[in-house]
């Protein structure tokens, strides 16, 4: 009877679709009545380059790149906002391309070159984009900021490289360094404090300098 009630709830949850499924999966126990515990996960070795330094780790295969950085390498500048690829706070640059580090398992990055916010600059020696964020107040609480900055640096590179976006009017022409191109490409990085207008000012200044 009790089993039935639980099964009913979770099956209904599954039928509700994606969102509810996520919720149910993270909160309800498995519906199978055969309760077995989990096997021990054997650690796997990983060698990669982080901010120019070679690093070697023995990791549980379930560790994300984000948690490898934060929990195993003490690089907490990269932030965990949602752990589901929905907010962009965990954005880092891997082999020259920005990714959501929460959506990527660390062990997939053997031999990769990872750049985090700490690799872009330091308080004493800021990257031009970091300095522009300070100058234009392109942040408030600061939590999404490392991800915004890693994205912003990459976005300018993507536009320079001529990679088109959703708002590119003519994908055969050169991509313009326009406000809408920057806004569209930055839209995976949520800032709940609402510093978007200032972030765009910061990016525009840096874009002007590199143009």
């Amino acid at each position: 009877m009790i089993q039935d009630e639980d099964f009913k709830v979770s099956r209904r949850g599954v039928l509700l679709g994606g969102v509810a499924t996520t919720a149910i999966a993270s909160t309800l126990s498995p519906t199978s009545s055969a309760q077995t515990s989990l096997p021990q996960v054997e650690p796997v070795s990983l060698r990669f380059t982080v901010n120019g330094q070679s690093r070697e780790l023995m990791l549980d295969t379930r560790v994300t790149l984000l948690d490898a950085l934060r929990e195993h390498l003490d690089l907490t500048g990269t932030k965990k906002g949602c752990d589901h690829g929905q907010c962009g706070a965990c954005t880092v640059i891997v082999n020259g391309q920005r990714i959501n580090s929460c959506l990527s398992l660390a062990v997939m990055h053997e031999g990769d070159e990872v750049t985090t916010i700490e690799g872009l600059g330091t308080p004493e020696n800021m990257h031009p984009m970091q300095a522009a964020f300070v100058k234009h107040d392109g942040y408030q609480c600061g939590y999404c900021t490392p991800g915004q900055i890693c994205s912003a640096v990459s976005v300018l590179e993507e536009i320079k490289a001529g990679i088109p976006s959703h708002v590119t009017e003519d994908i055969t022409a050169e991509v313009g360094m326009t406000n809408d191109e920057m806004r569209e490409r930055m839209s995976g990085n949520i800032c709940r404090c609402g510093a978007y207008s200032n972030i765009l000012d910061a990016m525009s200044e840096v874009a002007g300098e590199i143009a």
Binding site: G13, H84, M182, R183, M186, S187, N189, Y196, S197, L200
Partner: peptide, 27 residues
């Protein structure tokens, strides 16, 4: 509100939509 489940159905940042860069003009 999902009145059958008694909860907020869109309980993550993909389905509870907050403004993103593209939504906000110069202010």
């Amino acid at each position: 509100v999902d009145a059958r489940q008694g909860f907020f159905a869109n309980h993550d940042l993909a389905s509870y939509e907050v403004p993103v860069h593209m939504d906000i003009p110069h202010q």
